[in-house]
């Protein structure tokens, strides 16, 4: 499993498309809310978390299961925690859940890459 992270609009998707060339991507912003199996590439995982929260799902439980069933997936997930604590409670909870789930994925991932200004930095494992 490979996690690609970084802030918004840093070139994560472009990097994934050019480097891993997935045939199919599942978009967390609008996919069905069931856990995919053996997915090749899941993008916007942070949006998927927000949508799961609207359904009152336990995002950490979902993510653990997701990791078990998608061990070869490339996952794109934004880093969203680098600002002021949001006033809105639901925004705070989303931020917390994204952090928690990001830590779960990063721990299970063989490789974690952080993209800044389009430049990939391998922060865990190796880029093959």
């Amino acid at each position: 499993m490979i996690l690609i992270t970084g802030g918004a609009a840093q070139g994560k998707l472009k990097f994934v498309m050019e480097h891993f060339r997935p045939k199919e991507t599942i978009n967390g912003a609008d996919c069905v809310l069931s856990i995919p199996k053996n997915a090749e590439c899941v993008i916007n995982y942070h949006e998927l978390i927000k949508r799961l929260m609207h359904e009152n799902a336990d995002t950490a439980v979902f993510t653990k299961k997701f990791c078990t069933e998608n061990q070869n997936a490339v996952i794109i997930m934004n880093e969203i925690g680098g600002g002021i604590i949001p006033i809105e409670k639901s925004e705070r909870e989303w931020r917390e859940n994204v952090g928690k789930c990001g830590c779960i994925i990063a721990e299970k991932a063989d490789t974690v890459i952080r993209i800044t200004c389009g430049i990939p930095a391998v922060i865990k494992g190796k880029l093959t």
Partner: peptide
Amino acid sequence: TGGSKCGKSGY
């Protein structure tokens, strides 16, 4: 350092 819930405390 790091953002919110990024695993800082655990580390």
